[in-house]
């Protein structure tokens, strides 16, 4: 009973009639880092959006922090942080203005927000751009602001959708270290990405979904034993059923000539 996220028979159909999720079951314990991976269009982002209370038309039972997402969405949202995949932020604002706006949505005090925002921006190396508008920022700089905006209210559960995209090597190391420290502080992290070696290194448990169903769920070691191969990339390839990549690659070159 100590799961912090509990998903039972989760299904979801888009208004167009296309079924995205087909009965997902998943339990996440407090303090775990879950690596949530799957091919494009497998339903990763949809699962995350349902867990966040952004999509309300689904069937099945979803509990976050012991509460039902259908009835207690507002309370859940207060203790959940989200870093979306495509840099979705108000670009004409400055980082400080944007973070103030987000902080106020969580009911935080202006003085607290300002102190936190300034400290955090300085830590990721954006202190000199604190008052510049973000429409001139590079993707990595926006990603850093996005990361802070998802964490500024000190959430219990953190959903990260491709959080490393556009970051430079130093920032990637920093973010990985931050994730490790967040876990030792007892936070639960739900991590969705396509970069396999990062998932392999930071996750306590890896969940692979394909075509709306969970096809693998376990620690990296367990998955390795199951699939008899050495890297997550190979396991992923084996499980999601695409073993024709090599011939595809040579076909690609053929088509170029």
């Amino acid at each position: 009973m100590n799961s912090i996220i509990s998903i039972q028979q989760l299904s979801n159909t888009y208004p167009g009639g296309q079924q995205v999720l087909k009965g997902i079951n998943l339990e996440v314990k407090a303090g775990e880092i879950i690596g949530y991976i799957g091919p494009n269009g497998a339903g990763k982002s949809t699962t995350i959006k349902i867990l966040l209370g952004m999509i309300s038309h689904f069937s099945g039972e979803v509990q976050v922090l012991g509460r039902n997402i259908r009835t207690d969405a507002l309370d859940i949202k207060r203790s959940v942080g989200y870093v979306p995949e495509n840099a979705a932020l108000y670009e004409v604002l400055t980082p400080l203005e944007y973070l103030t706006f987000i902080g106020r949505l969580y009911g935080m005090d202006d003085a607290v927000i300002e102190r936190k925002a300034e400290d955090l921006l300085q830590l990721v190396g954006l202190s000199s751009q604190m008052n510049q508008r973000m429409n001139t920022f590079s993707k990595g700089m926006k990603q850093k602001v996005l990361l802070i905006s998802g964490l500024i209210h000190n959430p219990e559960i953190i959903f990260l959708d491709e959080p490393l995209s556009g970051l430079d090597a130093n920032a990637v190391i920093l973010v990985k270290e931050i994730l490790a420290q967040l876990r030792s502080a007892g936070k639960t992290i739900f991590y969705s990405s396509h970069i396999m070696d990062v998932v392999e290194k930071i996750s306590d448990r890896i969940v692979i979904i394909n075509q709306g169903q969970v096809i693998a769920n376990g620690t990296f070691e367990e998955l390795k034993e199951q699939a008899h191969s050495g890297s997550l990339e190979r396991i992923f390839q084996g499980l999601t059923g695409d073993d024709t990549t090599q011939s595809k690659a040579s076909d690609f070159l053929q088509a170029l000539q």
């Binding site: 979306p84 932020l89 969580y106």
Partner: peptide, 13 residues
Amino acid sequence: STDNTILLPRPVS
């Protein structure tokens, strides 16, 4: 449409 991604995950009714 970025508006939804920004506002919907926040604790606002």
